[in-house]
Design a binder for these strands. Sequence first.
RNA 1: GGGCUCGUGGUCUAGUUGGCUAUGACGUCGCCUUGACAUGGCGGAGGUCCUGAGUUCGAAUCUCAGCGGGCCCA
Length: 865
Amino acid sequence: MASSQDLPKNYDFAEVEERWRSIWRDEDHYFDKNSKKPQFVIDTPPPYPTGNFHIGNALNWCYIDFFARYKRMKGFNVMFPQGWDCHGLPTEVKVEELNHITKNDVSREEFRRMCRELTEKNIGLMRITLRKMAFSTDWSNEYVTMQPKYYGKTQLSFLRMLQSGYIYQSEHPVNYCTRCETAIAFAEVTYEDRETQLNYFDFDGVEIATSRPELLAACVAIAVHPEDKRYHPLKGGTKKVPLFSHDVPVVQDEAVDPAFGSGAVMICTFGDKQDVHWWKLHNLGLRKAIDRQGKMTAIAGKYQGLNTSECRASILADMKAQGILKRQEPLAQRVGTCWRCKTPIEILSERQWFVKIKPAEISEAAHQIKWFPEHMLLRMENWVDQMEWDWCISRQRIFATPIPVWFCKKCGEMTVPEDKDLPVDPTQVSPKHPCKKCGSTDFAGEVDVLDTWMDSSISVLNVTGWDGSGTPPFFPAQIRPQGHDIIRTWAFYTILRSVALTGQKPWDEILVNGMVLGEDGFKMSKSRGNIIVPEEILVKYGADALRQWGAMGAATGSDIMFNWNDVVSASRFQTKMWNITKFALIQLEKEGFDEKAQITALADRWLLVRLSDTVEQVSTALEAYQFDIALKAIREFAWEVLADNYIELVKGRLYKSDESRKGACLALHTAFDALCRLLAPFTPYFAEECYSHLSPGKSVHKQPWVAFTYDDDAARLEGNLLVQVVAEVRKYKHDAGLALNAPLGKVTIYAPHTVNDEGDTGRTLNADVHWRTDVAKLDRVITGIDFNRSVIGPTFRKQAQAFMAAITALSPEQLANPPATIILDGCETAVPENSFTPKYSYMEEGAQVDVITVGDVILTIAKSA
RNA sequence: GGGCUCGUGGUCUAGUUGGCUAUGACGUCGCCUUGACAUGGCGGAGGUCCUGAGUUCGAAUCUCAGCGGGCCCA
């Protein structure tokens, strides 16, 4: 036992946290591939290396670390990997910004190098925050998706899915960002409300309303509702497109809303998703009017080379000039935009690579996974049920995993590399063998690259040891923690890929965390100025306080509003707990504790049974990932049960030096040791510091989880009663204007059972306490009357004094059961309700006493005066 | 427009399968320096559990409708 003299008066989180960070070893958190322990593999989210580990990440990681540490203490072989999801547009954009270039100003290789460099730097910054937060990361299982070791696996997974027919290429309409010059998936489209104009114009005699006149060159049909009588004469006919003069058919479709605009709509390739739908359904032609840069193509004739908004203005002007533009109305519109640059997306038909989406098998796997909270499964179901297109996985960018295929320049045949040659960049190297079909050695490497989700959706395969064949050794993982914002992307794609590559679900369980909102209740954003960064909290209150906020801020799974109050109260709990530590160590240091001491005193038994209850509560909550409930139970036990009640009760006994203090010391030691372990997953620094003083040289994080049980129902009941009795007497003193430690004279407690309190109650109340099991013999006497003047005054006016005199004159029996009427100045007068209350006092064995009742227990306090 | 989710003292929040006086934190008010702690202790005030209807002996909890947030999607 360390000397209590060593303990500083105040808990200095900054000093303690830094000290333990320098002592702890990474090796203690490594997953052991040869272990016989049950495995607990976590499919951790690989964050995007922006350089800032934000508070949403922090919450997510807190959850992961709570159960990682808990599972380790429970004897599991835990893998808590750390990944970095590097590829993607944001970094490309940042590199362009920082270096004042565009991606076309330097070679592909040079541009990639710049991206890698920036990413390395950002990862370095984020690792520092992770370490400060005391996350028990397994750094031996760190992965970086931009490194050859990882993207080789991404390419391998691509080839496997290509071989099994999951991946195909096809010309198909895709969402396309003309600013980023790449196809993007639906998951990357965000919708924004914009105001636009609905233009009514004459289309060869038919009035058409459109918000996108620039697509006139791409018009392939006119659609009307089959029931719309206005347009029956047009059935089966064709119409000439104004300004462009090509003929288009008139088709009929139920989906046309006769009430919108003129009831006739032009179908263009492609204005929106609906156009794609009709285009397929009615087997229409394809007219590409917009190219990858967002410029008008040759079929736009004189408008060629204009961008879409220039073209729109120009076409509207020409329509006006020809007198065919009838009128314009404002129109509120939700427009799909690129999630990154907010440019409205175009739907272009391009040759792209796709992954087949098979909703049934994804849904089946999703149902085999246990979801926390359960309702998050619904979001997955809804997303799966409404899938319309396959997943477009090709991107026309640079900083990403290359698609590992070549095409023969002579015959067009596709060639893929062998597994052992991965990773490859087909734009840099050539295949090792000539074309199988024609023998040519002239190849063109695929320049398209893979969607970033193709990297991150094999995170679980990577950490479980996938090598391209069958089921990986540690697959499936036990749990996937992630936010609900990426259910339709990361969770969805991971399930898809796991099923496609292994035929199995990726994880046993998925734990979905909520979003962190600002203190004002809104999503954190720069424009609102409500962003709180973890670093700020770490500096002001330390990692343990921030972690407590993560646990207690909200029930697991629900969105959580950041709240400084919670951090402050977390920090106060540590102060309180630090003082408990000091007290416990001072007491235990005096004579040590005797492991074999007999626990007999009620307070000691009560503490142990309440501890046993707490351990069970915390363990149950942790098994269900209910961190708020778990930490709340721990705090309540420490603060209320141990500090405010138990220690106050046994203090006096601990100050003595007889046999009776041994039981208290053992109970105190047991509770304190358990508290350190219970706190270990939540506040690793703090728990380690406290435990190191209790058991020098030992780490709390290497101790097993608390297995303490203590079965004593009587102690729970009687102890709770004892605590109540003490509370009532404190209140009595408070009401009497006495200090809480003021001497109280003789107190008699009539309880149903004999209680061995070892004198704790008497010392705590500073009174001469007598426990008795017989029935209290009390005489009630009326010693005065409280008059309610607000009733008597208005009722009796001038007779008020007389009324009170008459009441005072009543006999004690009459006062106890007041008559309905009374004679006042010779008249029988009603006694109003609530006009007075008799004041009682009690006599016990001839002495005046005050009486308090707590359930069945009666307390009498002898009046000292 | 659809789906999910939430609405609890001034603020934030707990509340399994309906069941004692609705939990806790922060704030607020009063009292108290007692040998771990005033970054503390004790006590108090403060609630139409969003609204309305229904089911029930009994509803914060279940059902329906409405109002209002948030998230996701069309």
